[in-house]
């Protein structure tokens, strides 16, 4: 289980995360929604210790993380992967080399399976990141994390900037990941549609605070002003 207790983070004078609590079991999908710049990405980076929190604790499988201890965080990151919004692949390596970077031999065996999940053909892997589309780069960065077989995966805006077709592939991939590997997923996103379709629970952040936490149905039916504004962003096809 992944657990956050009262995570608080301040940048200059702005409180970006204010006593955020979170709980995620394996095989569950949690969507974290909120306006831009509200601290959603910071939350993910805090979980893996890239940005140490000012106050509060992160617990993974019953162990508290120590973000100031880089060596210990290495083990945490092997259990909990983070997929960035921008693919962040190494430009000087081919896609294949990016995937295999730092991997032991026996971990490469899952490659075929994961490529299928993201609908990527092996032939593309000999190319360099600059030669492939944004969507392809994003897929490779996901497979890169999947190969490490973490217990939890954090996705930072996985469908932003993607075509509707690619969005569906991404959502399908997340479903597979959760079902086949029992991975717990935290997805930070603007994509209300995907949130409603995929999430077991939805969390809404506003001004650093958790203002909603519950099921997608509860989210849809909520009459909170902010939630209604968010839901306006959903496409109504039958009107």
């Amino acid at each position: 289980m992944l657990e956050l207790k009262s995570i608080t983070k301040k940048f200059a004078n702005k409180v970006v995360l204010n006593s955020v609590n979170l709980r995620l079991q394996r095989s569950q999908i949690l969507f974290v929604l909120g306006r831009s710049g509200v601290g959603k990405s910071v939350l993910l980076k805090t979980i893996v210790g890239l940005i140490p929190q000012d106050r509060g604790e992160v617990w993974i499988n019953g162990e508290k993380t120590d973000p100031l201890n880089e060596e210990k965080m290495v083990t945490v990151r092997q259990k909990c992967g983070l997929v960035f919004q921008m693919p962040a692949l190494l430009d000087s390596l081919t896609l294949q080399e990016n995937l295999e970077f730092g991997l032991e031999g026996n971990q490469k065996s899952g490659l075929r399976k994961y490529l299928d999940w993201v609908q990527l053909s092996e032939g593309v892997l000999s190319r360099y990141p600059s030669e492939v589309s944004f969507g392809t780069q994003k897929k490779v960065s996901v497979v890169r994390t999947l190969l490490r077989e973490p217990q939890f995966i954090l996705f930072d805006e996985p469908t932003t900037g993607l075509d509707p077709v690619s969005r569906e592939v991404t959502n399908q991939m997340i479903r597979n990941v959760v079902k086949e590997s029992e991975t717990g997923c935290v997805v930070v996103s603007h994509d209300i549609q995907s949130a409603i379709e995929l999430a077991n629970s939805i969390m809404l952040l506003d001004e650093g605070r958790v203002v909603f936490e519950g099921t997608p149905e509860a989210f849809r039916n909520s009459d909170q002003g902010l939630i209604r504004s968010f839901c306006k962003g959903m496409v109504v096809l039958d009107a």
Partner: peptide, 19 residues
């Protein structure tokens, strides 16, 4: 229709290579 509904069934394919 495929574009509006999202999804894989239809003539639209994902772009693989950089333009």
């Amino acid at each position: 229709q495929q574009f509006i509904r999202g999804g894989l069934s239809g003539p639209l394919t994902e772009p693989v290579y950089a333009r």
